[in-house]
Amino acid sequence: MDKTNSLPRRAYKFMIYIVCGFLVLLSIAPFWIMFINATRNTFEIQQSAIAFFPSDSLFDNLKILVGKSFNPIKGFTNSMIISGGVTICTVYFSSLTAYALVVYNWRFRQPFFTFIMVIMMIPAQVTSIGFYQFMYSIHMTNNFLPLILPAIAAPTTVFFMRQYLLATLSIDIVNSARIDGAGEFHIFNRIILPIMKPAIATQAIFAFVGSWNNLFMPLILLTDSDKYTMPIMVSLLRGDIYKTEFGTIYLGLSLTVLPLFIVYFMLSKYIIAGVALGGVKE
């Protein structure tokens, strides 16, 4: 490979960096404009909609924002409760189901796994009418439970957890715990769950973010404004009440992006690794 450093090669490599740099800019720019405009007032934004440096209207915008129906603290709290509940349900019960699929030798083990593969792709959205009518008839609309409990059956996570257990768990650990007289539930909670920590961390991130960003189900189930989640709060910014308050709209959007940014840049290593693992479903 004596040509490695020839001029066309270097030019080509340079072009790759230019393209990647442009794509990075494309990822950052919308959020940069959003954060900057959150600190500017309507007049400034109407004069020129793009600025590189923040202005001084952040608190005025905040005052207008919370003066109307947008309540970031309530939205944040509600979303936290729902997403936290979903995350716990998803990782705990998926681990439990995966454990049952790997460790125990029961008659319907293989058919059950096939069944999980089959239902993996069914989206909740196409069954939403029946779900809504069912919840309405048992007076569970405006309640967080219908948004949390379905997470107990998360086929994709079970699939992932099963692959992880197959690769890492040695049955000797389970057997030696049995000899020590530990019960099956105890073994799962005290020995297996700690072993699964890396897989649980990855799946917890995805369960949390997925639930946090979900708009459809909360939108049809929650009609009481005290129960609104963050994405529903966001959708209020689209309404007439903030029509000309550009800075305020940008600020409201920024408040919903900020926590996700913090989580993402803290955990990006695990998230990227998780995407890579989840993509190649083997």
């Binding site: 019960f93 998926s94 439990l96 189901t97 454990y99 049952a100 699929l101 460790v103 125990y104 030798n105 029961w106 319907f108 083990r109 059950f112 239902i119 069914i122 909740a124 196409v126 069954t127 939403s128 009418i129 029946g130 779900f131 009518q133 069912f134 219908p146 409990l149 379905p150 997470a151 107990i152 059956a153 079970v158 099956e184 799962f188």
Partner: peptide, 25 residues
């Protein structure tokens, strides 16, 4: 039998929150 017991939550949640709404729809 623990294989069955440990799968009960998943199956129940699936029946109530997924299969039943599908049929209802």
């Amino acid at each position: 039998k623990y294989g069955y017991i440990f799968c009960i939550p998943f199956v129940l949640a699936f029946l109530v929150f997924s299969l039943y709404p599908t049929i209802y729809t």
